[in-house]
Amino acid sequence: MTLHVTFLGTSGAVPTTTRNPSSVFLKRGGDAFLFDAGEGTQRQMMKYGTGFDVSDVFVSHVHGDHVLGLPGLVQTWDFNDRSEPVTIHTPRGTKSKLDQLVRAIGSPTGFSVRVSEVTPGEVVLERDEYEVRAFETDHRTTSVGYALREHDRKGRFDREKAEDLGVPVGPKFSELHDGNPVELDDGTLVRPEQVVGDPRPGRTVVYTGDTRPVDATVEAADGADLLIHDATFADDAAERAAETGHSTAGEAARVARDAGVRRLALTHISSRYAGDVSALKQQAERTFTGKSVVAHDGLELDVPYPQ
């Protein structure tokens, strides 16, 4: 099952000629989601070929650089005769603002647009194989981050051992792999634990939106395969980061280190670094060596299963 991330917008509040406002596209198999939707998100989706088949949009907070792409995207969906419903998740207390924004053009859409409020700790979306949970962040307004965490997968099936135990090739293999014991023709009972290994961990992708470095992110990102973290400023602007509710590259790297994540993507990059992001990369690498990348618009990352 593929798990693929495309960065559609990686700028701070002010876009640049090469960075669009915040948006991340995530595709897991046949499911597709947006995390934030800054101005121009629909054009970025066209430019980077993600397609528009998104079922849910996860909004971290309602500052303009994270939501102003929604009216145009909703209108484009309508122009394309979309019929499937879409759910926009937003922090508690901000539903009315999102409702007004999405319906700013005044015309009803031919599909359902549901705005749902979320609170930190809540499972926002639950599917058979994974869930998306909101967690607390620290910005200048009501805000949340989101963690997509897959459930454990089945252990590996030892076909050779099953055959040695006399299990015939066929449906009984599937029964055992599904966790059910099977009885052989001679009355022998073979149990799943005899031929199926321990459950294997799934994958986790965490998106913080705009935030100060907080323990809640460390907890939500525990062992994550990919942490997408606010890194608006370099470390020499730490005071400015604190004043505006953002993080520096070094602070993001310390969160990644403390959470034990496998890879860190720095995003929401201030326009002051439009010409050179090397300082951000270097500062993250001091703490999180060999595992950090400064995201740019169009960057694609595959998230493999843990070994």
Rank of each mutant, 00 (worst) to 15 (best):
V118T: 11
L73H: 05
T87E: 06
E150N: 07
G187F: 07
F233R: 00
V255P: 11
D164I: 04
Y273S: 08
V218L: 07
V5T: 11
D230H: 15
N180K: 12
V214Y: 10
E131A: 15
K172C: 05
K97H: 10
S107D: 08
F25D: 03
A237D: 11
V195C: 11
V118F: 07
D222R: 04
E163H: 05
G72A: 14
A134P: 15
Q307G: 15
S116W: 10
H296D: 13
T17W: 08
F111N: 05
R19I: 03
K161G: 03
P306D: 06
F157N: 11
T109H: 15
T10G: 14
S270G: 09
E39S: 14
D276I: 08
Q75C: 03
D78G: 04
G187E: 06
T211R: 02
E126I: 07
E163Q: 12
D258R: 14
R203F: 10
R82I: 04
A234D: 07
L264I: 07
Q194R: 12
D56Y: 03
Q75V: 14
T41L: 15
R19W: 09
D235L: 00
D53V: 04
K47C: 05
R156L: 13
T17L: 09
L176I: 04
G223F: 00
S116T: 13
R200N: 05
V214L: 15
L266Q: 10
E84C: 06
L184K: 03
F33T: 02
P91N: 02
G298C: 06
A238P: 07
V24I: 15
P71W: 00
G245H: 01
E300Y: 09
V24D: 07
L148H: 15
A37F: 02
H4L: 11
R114N: 13
K95C: 10
